[in-house]
Design a protein around this nucleic acid. Sequence first.
DNA 1: AAGTGGTCTAGACCACAAA
DNA 2: TTGTGGTCTAGACCACTTG
Lengths: 240, 240
Amino acid sequence: MQDAKYIQVVKTLKHRIKNDKYKLNTPLPNQNDLAKEFNVSRMTVKKALDILAMEGLIYSKRGLGTFIRKNALTSTKEDLSFNEYTGLSQNLKRPIESKIIKFDVKFPDETLCERLDITPTDPIYEILRLRIVDEQPYVLEHTFMPLKIVPNLDLDILKKSLYHYLQTQLNLKISGAFRKITAEKSTELDQKYLESKEHDPILQISQIVYLEDGRPFEVSTSRHPYDKHAYTMVDIHQQK
Amino acid sequence: MQDAKYIQVVKTLKHRIKNDKYKLNTPLPNQNDLAKEFNVSRMTVKKALDILAMEGLIYSKRGLGTFIRKNALTSTKEDLSFNEYTGLSQNLKRPIESKIIKFDVKFPDETLCERLDITPTDPIYEILRLRIVDEQPYVLEHTFMPLKIVPNLDLDILKKSLYHYLQTQLNLKISGAFRKITAEKSTELDQKYLESKEHDPILQISQIVYLEDGRPFEVSTSRHPYDKHAYTMVDIHQQK
DNA sequence: AAGTGGTCTAGACCACAAA
DNA sequence: TTGTGGTCTAGACCACTTG
């Protein structure tokens, strides 16, 4: 299936911006000109520009034009951005290994029932994986998923990319997640697997991930060594 | 100035959803019916629904309808969500106090020049504030702002809400921010003002805040006691 | 086949900024 | 006054789901 026109415009403009086709401090071509160039209506151009603005690449000012936003903070030495959710593997160029610490099936407790929107007799997988990048412990992931949605998991899938399996084999698409980020003290588990020292902080990300059709399909908690990772995000408002 | 129609629709629907006017597991009225009810075009309804979907309140499925998404994770015992950026004061019902630890003017270093998009001879304010809620230390904020954008700061403004001053007196509007969240070890400053123990982790949020016209106007680092606060967010994708 | 949401258009009018 | 982006419409066609 071909991309919608506005997605094509987004992709083309994104490519141009990243390759410095447009100058900083001078406006992009106006919406009418872009509409002519791409042979679409101005509304379609506007929708594409809205998306780029939301992602923080540009900003528009009525009466003036549309400008490229200088990035920053992302360019510092620290690690990766999770902003586009595709699972861990897609975000890294380097190969990732997995050590399966626990792989079990059980009934969910009350909290998990509520968060995954299932009944107490819908079995779930419980998975504890250590993810390793460049032979360094990277993140400890504790995941719960209902069998109803993700059947037939096996060790081979877990060692590779779960999200790749979901997308290609089960044809499930992810729409997003609720996330909560906290700083935590390290536990014995962290010290054992992440090689954290006793008093090293842990950056913890708890999330509920949703499919495109609105079903929650994963509850997980990821624990990162504090000195290796940061969570970065863009939070640009549109309305008002 | 009156809200745009789609904003009015957003607000009305949000109110209805929060007050349980629509049933879970049954679709909302379809887009044509909503358009008739609000006396707007379907495109306008669609735009409003897109915004609600982005905020995580609803999801739509082609051929089926639009449904309310059950919230979760937000309902746990932990603290507040920063998801809508309006400065700290707006997010809390309880009164907030400020203790000004440092209030200075200086020239920016190289990093600040780049992040605030200013020259080395544009003076900046440096502010260190301890924010106190319920008589408990809440967050330690270290802020840099160019005088070019925010002139005439004084202690009285700093003790109240900086953002309120920006919006009402200077008529500046904030469009959003780049943020980086990390877990850090506590420093002597944290221990002194936040009353953190030596080995307590700190949840740190570094950000560059942007005005509506694209100018960066604040670089800040906020440090929170680990056991009191979490950063929560919705990250729902639209396209594709 | 009927009903849903997703996309797209051509044109209109408005608000804002600069000259 | 001109040129910019922001909103809005009425109608069209398409893709998906269920009967």
